[in-house]
Write a protein that binds this DNA or RNA. Structure first.
Lengths: 299, 299
DNA sequence: CACTCTTACGGCACCCGTAAGAATC
DNA sequence: GATTCTTACGGGTGCCGTAAGAGTG
């Protein structure tokens, strides 16, 4: 019995799939299968029921699972407390929404490369719901998601709260009073894709209104949205930091007198059973970037 | 970091010697040294101070020691609870005193061979004090000793209490009353070697007497002692079971009317930090042999 | 000189990945 | 047929033991 075998078993069991576990451990699927087989052999005990389409845990496997977790925890603990803190090696697969991907991601990657040159980052851009599922499945090491997790097996920590502003083309004439209401009557709202977490902001705003429903145009790309707004084809809402450069260049402007939109809280999500130093370090690095004084969503 | 490395480190640290640890793990000394080095490399951290004659633990090593123990415990726990109980493989090095070695040892070895054909036994015969030290040093896996351990790192369990009788040649004339006192005046007491645990019985008996000190002849071999007694050259005390065959053959006899000697309690000793199934199984086997209904010390 | 641990090195065994096979849906 | 896990196999790495080296008391 080796730690590698226990690790392979643990992730195979909790990912619910040998294939996913192999991917997570950056191992070929056949090697992972072999590791599990060898563990079974060394314990002389079937851990997976292989009769079905997917492998399922036997009672013995279910019994082993928490014990394997303990071993891996203890192992991590040793490395963390006794081992000298060296650079982290290996891979990290993480997920973010599109906004984050197009804003702080490059800077984050640069920070990681500086601090951990031997770590390979594999960003994965998807909508929040999808990211959470992939995290649960063990395909991702962590994810930045704009809502708290719905599954208790996921731990999370607040990273930042992002302010949004109503934006309109800089040359769009606006009345002094009730500018937003006037604009909404004339122009469509250009909104993020419905499944994106940012769309929650619009949902919330809409519930606050008693006006008839405004026209809404959806788009799945922030830059394209900004272009549409700049061309005077609609109004939209953007993260303050993200849109700031365009305001400075007088391409767009904040809708005057508009009430602030609901803040969007971003959380760092990770599997509660994953206590690798890797996770802690990268969480720290994300938080550090926030603490540089600039909003996390900065182009 | 692997379990083998942690095991090597643990025994190197607790045995206080790479050489002894290697012997205990049935590994060449150089391989053990390499395992420890590789552990240090994987933790990027010196665990032993190699400047002196012997290696000593660094602070980091001291910190690691209990954690390594936990890992090995957890590992043993998994094998014990999840793993199917198969025959035990490997080696077991154990110690006994001379009495045990010349009495129940062969039967014990046969029992072990029957139940665990793949287990190699390595008996080691020494005096009790010596055995305990070798147990502490990690050179022995267990020992049968006629006194409780003096070191708290050793666990123990009562195996059997052995009765001793005063023995004299069968044809030696004995008065009806005070036979023992009369014999002691005429004949020397043939006793086991002073460092043997059985000598405690004589010490105890002597303290109970207010007579002048009797002549005492020591001998380091039970069979030789029996021969001396049979030849009428002295009296001695033997375990009931051990001497029974010679009584039946009317070569020696119990000194009539002699008061019973103090019982000698035999204990199964093992290192408290050694929780291998091997130990539990062999302890059980020793106890089973006792429970066969015959005294443990049976030729 | 006895004893400790380390280093060098040849050989074997283990473990990985590729690729093909078997089974399920 | 797509996906899942297993098996076969070639190749490289890791680990063991022998033997020689270096340092201590």
């Amino acid at each position: 019995m080796t730690l590698k075998q226990l690790e392979a078993f643990y992730w195979a069991a909790t990912c619910g799939s040998f294939t996913v576990a192999a991917s997570r451990l950056h191992l070929s699927q056949s090697s992972l299968s072999k590791r599990v087989s060898e563990l079974e052999e060394s314990l002389s005990c079937q851990l997976f029921d292989r009769s079905g389409y997917r492998c399922t845990l036997t009672p013995a496997g279910t019994e082993l699972l928490p014990k394997a977790r303990q071993m891996l925890n203890a192992s991590e603990d040793i490395v963390a407390t006794v081992g000298k803190d060296l650079g982290i090696k290996g891979w990290c697969r993480f997920g973010t929404g599109e906004i984050a991907a197009s804003s702080w991601l490059p800077q984050f990657v640069v920070s990681v490369k500086q601090q951990f040159p031997d770590l390979s980052l594999e960003p994965y851009v998807e909508l929040g719901r999808e990211l959470e599922q992939r995290l649960i499945d063990g395909e991702l090491d962590f994810a930045i998601i704009a809502h708290p997790p719905s599954d208790p097996s996921i731990q999370y920590e607040l990273i930042a709260e992002v302010d949004f502003d109503w934006i309109v083309a800089a040359d769009m004439p606006c009345p002094r009073k009730h500018a937003l209401a006037t604009l909404v009557e004339k122009l469509p709202i250009i909104s993020m894709h419905k499944n994106a977490s940012t769309s929650k902001i619009l949902d919330h705003w809409l519930r606050m209104q008693h006006n008839p429903k405004p026209k809404i145009v959806t788009c799945n790309n922030m830059s394209a949205m900004a272009g549409l707004v700049a061309a005077g084809l609609g109004i939209s809402y953007f993260p303050k930091g993200w849109i700031a450069p365009l305001i400075e260049k007088r391409i767009v402007k904040i809708v005057p007198g508009s009430e602030p939109l609901e803040k969007l809280a971003y959380y760092f999500h990770w599997r509660a059973d994953d206590n690798r130093r890797l996770i802690k370090e990268l969480k720290g690095l994300v938080l550090e970037n926030v603490n540089y004084g600039m909003p996390i969503l900065m182009l």
